[in-house]
């Protein structure tokens, strides 16, 4: 039985994936609907996309979101990678339990709590709310996701490689950048992408920590969604889905190519050694 793939398994997978993908597919299809009534199909049209680009408010929000996502993902990747190294390499330091708790708790913490608590912090220290407060908030929760992604890669990484580099006289910093980092790079990149999309998506935490002039795209979408489903919103969502899908596919091609290259290099090295 183990190894053969039963009919039950195939059926459950097909149903499962239909459930996961059908709603998104319908949303994309109806963004090309001619009619203003979202659920009545009246022919193919791209007019909602054209209208979108003349919507100043939406475009401004998209620009703010892109900047926040880029900056927060970059800082979160650096901090998250450091946290992952600290957790895997240094098994003993004071306050390690608290540290690992703080890394894993934000993964499941309800967003309303994180958002409210960060807002109250910014108010308490008199920090003007806006672009930077949203960015700091996004760094804080997305660095933990980066840490988890990088940590799982670090655990499968053979530490003796780094030790060999140290024995051969490399400084620890050099050993990290020349040996460890190239190996964990795919995880670091996917960590960055995860942080980027988390920031792109976030409504709740941004609503709490944002201020005047820093309305993000999800906040804008949310305020329009509350008024009802419109084809414009379907169009915005379709564009966002398109960007993310392209990013994920590009990243998987890059990592696959790197993997092939790495294997080729390894084989070349073995041949030289032999």
């Amino acid at each position: 039985m183990a190894g053969s793939w039963g009919r039950f398994n195939i059926v459950s997978l097909v149903l499962g994936f239909a459930f996961l993908y059908l709603p998104i597919l319908l949303l994309v299809i109806y963004s090309f609907n001619e009619s203003r009534l979202v659920t009545v199909w009246a022919g193919f049209s791209t007019k909602w996309y054209v209208e979108l680009f003349s919507n100043r408010g939406l475009m401004d929000a998209a620009w703010v979101t892109a900047r926040v996502a880029f900056l927060s993902a970059t800082v979160a990747t650096v901090l998250g990678t450091m946290a992952a190294i600290a957790l895997t390499r240094y098994t003993r330091f004071r306050g390690r339990l608290l540290f690992s708790g703080m890394v894993f708790a934000p993964l499941v913490m309800p967003e309303v709590i994180t958002g409210l608590s960060l807002l109250l912090l910014f108010v308490a220290i008199n920090f003007d709310r806006g672009f930077f407060t949203v960015t700091i908030a996004h760094i804080t929760f997305s660095m933990c996701f980066v840490a988890v992604v990088v940590q799982s890669r670090l655990m499968s990484f053979d530490q003796s490689l780094e030790e060999a580099a140290l024995d051969l006289g490399a400084t620890p910093v050099k050993a990290f950048f020349q040996v460890t980092l190239p190996v964990i790079l795919p995880a670091v990149i996917s960590g960055w992408m995860l942080a980027f999309t988390l920031s792109l998506d976030d409504l709740v935490i941004a609503s709490f920590t944002s201020g005047p002039g820093a309305t993000t795209l999800p906040m804008k979408i949310y305020s329009q969604v509350r008024l009802g489903v419109t084809p414009e919103i379907n169009a915005v969502c379709t564009i966002l889905i398109g960007i993310v899908a392209m990013g994920v596919i590009a990243a998987s091609i890059v990592t696959k190519r790197q993997e092939v290259q790495r294997r080729r290099d390894e084989q070349a090295a073995i041949r030289v050694a032999a």
Partner: peptide, 20 residues
């Protein structure tokens, strides 16, 4: 295929269900 929907916005996925 399981991870991909996770990358698309939470808000969008919830919103998609309103129309359904």
């Amino acid at each position: 295929l399981v991870i991909l929907p996770f990358w698309t916005s939470f808000l969008i996925r919830v919103y998609a269900w309103i129309g359904i």
